[in-house]
Amino acid sequence: MIDPRLQTLRVLRAEGTVTATAAVLHLTPSTVSQQLRQLAAELGVQLLRPTGRRVALTPAAHTLVRHADALHEQWERAAAALEAHSTGGAGHLRITGVASAMAAVTAPAVRRLHTRFPQMTFHLSEDPGEDRFRLLVAGRADIAVVIPAAGTPPPGDRRFTQRALLQEPQDLLVAEDHPLARRAAVELRDAAHETWIQAGDPHDQHQLLLSAAAAAGFAPRIEHAAVDWFAVASLVAHGHGICLMPRLAPLPSDLPVRRVPLGGRGAPTRHLVACARRGSTGQTTVSRGLSALQEAADAWQSAHGGGPLPGE
């Protein structure tokens, strides 16, 4: 119902290039360029200016995007209001999120939803390498479960509603024969001279290590890197280094590794946040999804947030 060229401009603002915008919207770059030229001509303003091989939004374009954000928020509210007049199934819900949250929070939440609302259908995806906020803007996901990091939209961003789900402790993962494995708890600075593994998603987990280490007064010596937590645990078990391990992340039971709780002032934690397009939370499927995610997060927090480590 809203001019699709406004959505193209919003996605371009998020993606930064015509090529990336075209890929997200499943259009050709020439179609994206044509849409924006037509929109600029109809409005009588310049929307883009070249900056090398990229394009930048003009002040007029930024003004238009602010109004487009408000229009899309209002449309999400209208869709929620119209939903009360519709008939049929219980709807389809698409959730994207980080892998550790998928295993510990999203999957249990969707199981709850399927039990309560058997007609609901779901699509769950980790979407590795994707900016999950951009998936929301592009309409490719309804809810994103994310770990805020440097560069992610702030809580006040007009495009999104963000709800805190849980605060997740970080553990130190070491081999069973490592001297720190015998400790009931350690402070991060106790591991300042260790060899570290860049573990997990480089966009959030690695940034957490860097910032936590800086706060503890050292820069970690990083020798290896792996994203999959089973691969990370194998590197640790074979003596190649230590790493920060999110409490949500599962460990293989057959590897000689040990989680050691991190304590002391400034012990690192991750914050898990559920995000949706602003205005969409009144829609039944999104509202149910957010509620189920919060229930699953509360259950996990009660079981693991400050209690025994998983497997103990």
Rank of each mutant, 00 (worst) to 15 (best):
C275L: 06
A20V: 03
R77V: 11
A84T: 14
G44M: 07
T195E: 06
V11R: 01
F117P: 00
T87F: 10
Q207D: 02
M245H: 15
E223L: 13
T17A: 11
E187T: 14
P261L: 01
A212D: 09
R5G: 07
A299E: 15
G307Y: 10
T87I: 09
L209F: 01
R258S: 09
L9Y: 03
A70C: 03
G129Y: 05
L135C: 09
E126W: 00
V32W: 03
D171P: 07
L165R: 09
A61G: 08
F117S: 03
H178A: 00
D204I: 07
G263N: 08
Q7S: 12
A90Q: 13
A70V: 01
G89C: 05
T96V: 15
G266K: 06
H62A: 10
T285A: 15
H178Y: 04
A274C: 09
P148S: 06
Q7C: 04
V105C: 05
E130D: 14
H92F: 13
D127G: 00
L39S: 10
R159I: 03
L235F: 12
A60N: 13
A22N: 07
G307S: 12
A226V: 08
L57D: 10
E126A: 12
Q205N: 09
M102F: 06
L165C: 12
V227H: 13
L290P: 02
D254N: 11
A214H: 14
Q207T: 11
E312M: 07
H26G: 05
I242A: 01
A231H: 12
G151S: 10
G16M: 12
W229P: 11
P128C: 05
A231W: 03
L71D: 09
L188Q: 04
G139T: 06
R132Q: 13
V232C: 09
A78H: 11
H62K: 14
F218A: 04
F122S: 01
G88T: 11
P256K: 02
A292G: 03
M1E: 04
P108K: 05
A216G: 06
T19Y: 07
P310E: 09
Q35Y: 11
Q74V: 08
H178R: 02
A150T: 13
A20N: 10
G305W: 08
P4H: 14
G91K: 07
G139R: 00
T161I: 04
V174W: 02
V137R: 10
T28L: 10
R116A: 15
H238C: 10
R159L: 08
H240K: 14
E126V: 14
R182D: 07
A231Q: 15
H271Y: 06
R140D: 06
A292E: 08
S253A: 15
P29Q: 01
L208N: 13
V286M: 06
L251M: 09
Q162F: 04
Q198W: 09
R49S: 13
V186M: 06
E130M: 07
G129P: 05
A70S: 12
L36T: 03
A303E: 13
A150C: 03
P29F: 02
D127L: 11
R259I: 09
T63N: 09
R247W: 04
L210K: 08
A249W: 04
S100R: 10
R66I: 07
F218Y: 15
T121D: 00
A141Y: 01
M245A: 14
D3E: 14
